[in-house]
């Protein structure tokens, strides 16, 4: 967009980019520096030796995998139904889903708290997975329906002529065509599930049921607010996220950008 013909303006633009980008690194530098103060790598050892880190990671993985599976299944089937099948009052159902699109999750806190208490599922992972999936699904269905509308109906017709039932058409023709949108849906749900803080904060009480976003808080009480070890635990939690992003850069950027435009 910028055109630099002279060397001086080239240097100026490069410097401007550098100056604007450095502040984004500062918190990361602060995090790593802070985690190495005092005992140095001993902080990481102390955090790891508590033995709880794998538990928190395992729980986060369960939450992420289950919400992805749930969101993926309901999204793929519903989007197929909305885009390609006959439903009386179709748009009414669709609007019912769209109305939930911008709902702030904090609105669900009071009723979910009371309900999970009553049903005895408070302090279980299910109490986090179901609301996460329900909040995610309206948007992914909108996204997938738009994509499905672009799948030519002739393809489905060809399948029908060959004697395939609607389930077979869905399974053998539609699903393989929708891989690009599936990738976006999976990445989007993964990030939202892995990073979710409010629902776990309300629902998960005992440490053996907690997820990685509650890890800093756990170590604040575990190490009597010893900042260096809390930060070491934060670095341990951040590393897999940064790695996942670096490896799947394109998918993350696309998935999140698609998610932003709801």
């Amino acid at each position: 967009m910028f055109e630099a013909r002279r060397l001086s303006s080239k240097i100026f633009l490069q410097a401007l980019l550098f100056v604007l980008t450095v502040p984004f690194l500062l918190p990361l530098i602060q995090m790593v520096m802070g985690s190495l103060r005092g005992a140095g790598f001993g902080n990481y050892k102390a955090v790891w030796n508590t033995g709880v880190v794998p538990t928190f990671f395992r729980n986060s993985a369960i939450v992420a995998v289950c919400s992805i599976a749930l969101v993926y299944c309901v999204t793929m089937t519903a989007a197929f139904g909305f885009a390609k099948l006959r439903i009386a009052g179709k748009e009414i159902y669709f609007w019912m889903l769209l109305a939930a699109l911008t709902l702030p999750e904090v609105v669900l806190l009071a009723p979910l708290f009371a309900t999970t208490m009553k049903l005895g599922v408070h302090n279980t992972l299910v109490a986090v997975i179901l609301p996460l999936a329900a909040l995610q699904a309206p948007f992914t269905i909108l996204l997938a329906r738009n994509f499905y509308e672009g799948v030519p109906s002739e393809l489905l017709e060809a399948g029908r002529i060959d004697g395939a039932g609607v389930v077979q058409i869905f399974w053998h023709i539609v699903l393989p065509l929708t891989r690009p949108i599936a990738a976006a849906i999976i990445v989007l749900t993964l990030i939202n599930a892995w990073n979710s803080y409010l629902l776990p904060l309300v629902m998960l009480i005992s440490p053996e049921n907690q997820v990685v976003t509650l890890l800093p808080q756990f170590f604040v009480s575990e190490f009597a607010n010893d900042q260096t070890k809390v930060l070491a635990s934060a670095v341990i939690t951040a590393i897999p996220e940064v790695l996942a992003y670096l490896l799947l850069q394109k998918y993350f950027e696309r998935g999140l950008a698609a998610g932003a435009l709801k």
Binding site: F24, L25, L231
Partner: peptide, 19 residues
Amino acid sequence: HKVIIFVPTVLAPATMGPT
């Protein structure tokens, strides 16, 4: 530069809170 600008979007606020 793109990676540096985008990494904060991926990190969980809960992870960065203490920092």
